[in-house]
Design a binder for these strands. Structure first.
Lengths: 329, 329
DNA sequence: TTGTAAGCGTTATCAG
DNA sequence: CTGATAACGCTTACAA
C-alpha cells in the first residue's frame, strides 16, 4: 500500500538518509543525487509519513483550538483567523467544542496533550487555577483569546471601554433613558466589564442608574427578545437599549418592531460584536466591532512566535474595538 | 520533561509491555500488577504519546475536514455535527479552509495524507476526476457532504425537490409572478438543481418561464440585495422571490423593505438553508431547511462505520429537507 | 500472566 | 557528500 522512504531509497539507489536529506534540504546533497531522488519520489508518488517524522523531531505542526461551540456566531471568524495564520506557518488546527463543559474541556485537553500538539488556543470557559496548573504541568504553549489569566499569553479587547463607548454614543444622541441587557455578571470576561462600562458612561454623564433598566441575558437571541419585551412594558420605557451581544440586540430589534416602535426614532438599539449578521438585518445594527478575525490572526501569530522561540515583548495584546454606526442608532 | 512508558514501567517494577497492556486492556493482566501500574501512572501523571502509538498501530484517530470557509453560514453547523459524532467515536477533527481554491485544496489534501488521517470529510469544490483519482490512490476513506461523485460515499439532500417544494408553496399562495435568484448554473451541487426545481414547479403549474425573472447570484447577501433591486425595478415586478440561499433571501428582504414593499403582503420571499439567522430577521424568513447538523452527524457516522470495517448497506444518503414557514411568505 | 525484542518510518549522529 | 545505524515511544508476536 503506502510506500516508505526505503522504497524511494532503493529505487533511487541511495540510502534512506540521503532521501531524507533531499526532502528536508538542510544539508547539501550533490545535484545529481538530488535529481535521482526527486525522480524516484515523483515516480512512486511517495508522501512522507508525518507521524513518523513527528515522533523523531518532537513536534507535530498541529495546534489545538478549544472553544465552546463553533456554531456560535462569535467563533467561526476567529477560528478562520487562526487557521489562516496557522496555515502560513504550516500548522494544522484540531478543533474541539466543549459546550463550556468542564469535563469535556479536560478530556479534550488530555487528548491534545497526548496527540502532542505544539500549542493550544483556548477560548472556552474562564480559566481556573486547576486548569492553569494542568496547562503549566505539560510543556505546551498556551494562548488565550477573549479571556485572561496571570502570566499566560492572551488576546483581548478592552470590554469596559468598548461598552462605555457604545453608551456614550447613545448619550451623544441626546438620549438618557438607556437600558442594558448584559451578559452574566458572573462572567468576568465579558458580562462584568460591559456592565461596568455601561455604569461608567452613565455616571460620567451624570445619569443615575435605574435598576429596572438593567437586565441579565445569556448573549442569545431569545434573551434579548425577552429582555426587550420586559423593558418595553415598563411604565417608563427606555428610549435606547444597549445589548451586550449582537444576537441579543437583534432580538431587541424584533421585540421593538413587533411592539410597533420605529427604530431608531422611537427606540435606539446598539449591539456588541459586529457579527456578520448585524449588517444584514433591517434596520442594520449599530454595534461595537470586535476584530474577530484579527483576534484569531494576532493570537496565532503570537503563538507561532513563541513556538519558534522568538522573544516576544508583548504577550498580552489588547486589540482595538470600533464603534460601527449603522441604522439602529 | 515529558516521561515515557519506560519511566512508568520502571517505577511500577514491570516491563513496558505490561504497562502497555494495562493501558489498552486487551490482554488480561493480574489485578495486583494492574494496580501497581495504575499507581505509577497516577503518581507520574504519565500521558501516553499518541504519535508513537499511531506509528505502530497505523491509525491516528484523526479525520480531516475540507471546507471552503468556516465563516460561511453554512458550515459551522455541519462541522459541529461531524465533531460531535467524531468525538463519540474518539476521533479528532483537523479543519481545513480552502476558499474553494484548487491549489489550497490540493495542499491540504496532501498534508492530511501525510499526517495519516483515518478519513476525510470533503465539502469543498465539486469533485473533478483528477481529485477523485488522487483520493483513490491514497488508501484514505472519503466522505462527501453536499456533493456527490461516482462510487464515493455521500450525504446530500434532494435539491431539485426542495426548490420545487419551495416554489410550489409560493404558488399555493396564489402567486404566479415568481422570480428566482439562484446559484451559479455551473454549480452542479446546488445552483443547477435548484434552478431545475424552480422550473419544474412552474411548469407543472402551467406557468410560463419569464427569463427576466431568473437571476444568477453567488449565495451571498449582496448578490441577493442587488438581484432584488433589479427585479423590483422591472416594469412588471415579481410578487415573490425565491432565493437559493438564506443570505441572499435576507438581502432580498432588505431590498424589498427599502423600496417600501410590505413583506409578505406585497412581496413574498423564500430562502434556502435555514441558517440560524433566518429565524432572527424581521420579518423572519420562510425557507427550506437543510438538516445541517444532521448532515454532519450522519456523514461522520457513515465514515466511522466504514473505518471500523462495518458493512454499510447505504453509502449514498439523501436526507430530508423541510419547508419552514415563517413570516416572509 | 509477563518479559524480550522486533519493528513502525523518520531524522540525526558519526564515520568514511 | 553519503551510508550505517541508533534512536523516537509505543505495540505485539513470541517465548518463558
Amino acid at each position: 500500500m503506502s510506500l516508505s522512504i526505503k522504497d524511494v531509497a532503493k529505487l533511487a539507489g541511495v540510502s534512506v538518509a540521503t532521501v531524507s536529506r533531499v526532502m528536508n534540504k538542510k544539508v547539501f546533497v550533490k545535484e545529481e543525487t538530488t535529481k535521482k531522488v526527486l525522480d524516484a519520489i515523483e515516480k512512486t508518488g511517495y508522501k512522507p509519513n508525518a507521524i513518523a517524522r513527528s515522533l523523531k523531531v518532537k513536534n507535530t505542526k498541529s495546534i489545538g483550538i478549544i472553544i465552546p461551540d463553533i456554531s456560535s456566531h462569535f467563533f467561526p471568524d476567529v477560528v478562520r483567523g487562526i487557521e489562516d495564520i496557522a496555515n502560513e506557518y504550516s500548522y494544522n488546527i484540531i478543533l474541539c467544542n466543549t459546550d463550556l463543559n468542564r469535563e469535556k474541556e479536560k478530556e479534550y485537553f488530555d487528548v491534545l496533550v497526548e496527540k502532542q500538539v505544539d500549542g493550544i488556543v483556548y477560548m472556552s470557559n474562564t480559566i481556573t487555577d486547576e486548569i492553569a496548573d494542568k496547562m503549566a504541568s505539560v510543556g505546551i504553549e498556551i494562548l488565550l483569546i477573549s479571556t485572561d489569566y496571570k502570566e499566560l499569553s492572551s488576546i483581548t479587547i478592552d470590554n469596559v471601554k468598548a461598552a462605555e463607548d457604545a453608551v456614550k454614543y447613545i448619550i451623544s444622541k441626546g438620549v438618557r433613558d438607556i437600558a442594558l441587557i448584559g451578559g452574566e455578571m458572573t462572567d468576568p470576561n465579558a458580562g462584568l466589564p460591559r456592565f461596568n462600562g455601561y455604569v461608567k458612561a452613565l455616571s460620567e454623564a451624570g445619569i443615575s442608574i435605574n435598576k429596572d433598566y438593567i437586565l441579565e441575558g445569556n448573549y442569545k437571541y431569545e434573551s434579548g427578545y425577552e429582555g426587550a419585551k420586559k423593558l418595553l412594558s415598563l411604565k417608563q420605557r427606555p428610549r435606547a437599549i444597549f445589548a451586550a451581544s449582537d444576537e441579543m440586540a437583534i432580538g431587541v430589534i424584533r421585540a421593538g418592531l413587533e411592539s410597533g416602535y420605529r427604530i431608531p426614532d422611537e427606540l435606539m438599539v446598539v449591539g456588541f460584536d459586529d457579527i456578520d449578521m448585524s449588517r444584514m438585518v433591517y434596520p442594520s445594527l449599530t454595534t461595537i466591532s470586535q476584530p474577530l478575525y484579527e483576534m484569531g490572526c494576532e493570537g496565532m501569530k503570537l503563538l507561532a512566535k513563541k513556538l519558534h522561540g522568538e522573544k516576544v515583548e508583548q504577550f498580552k495584546i489588547v486589540l482595538e474595538h470600533k464603534l460601527i454606526i449603522r441604522e439602529s442608532c
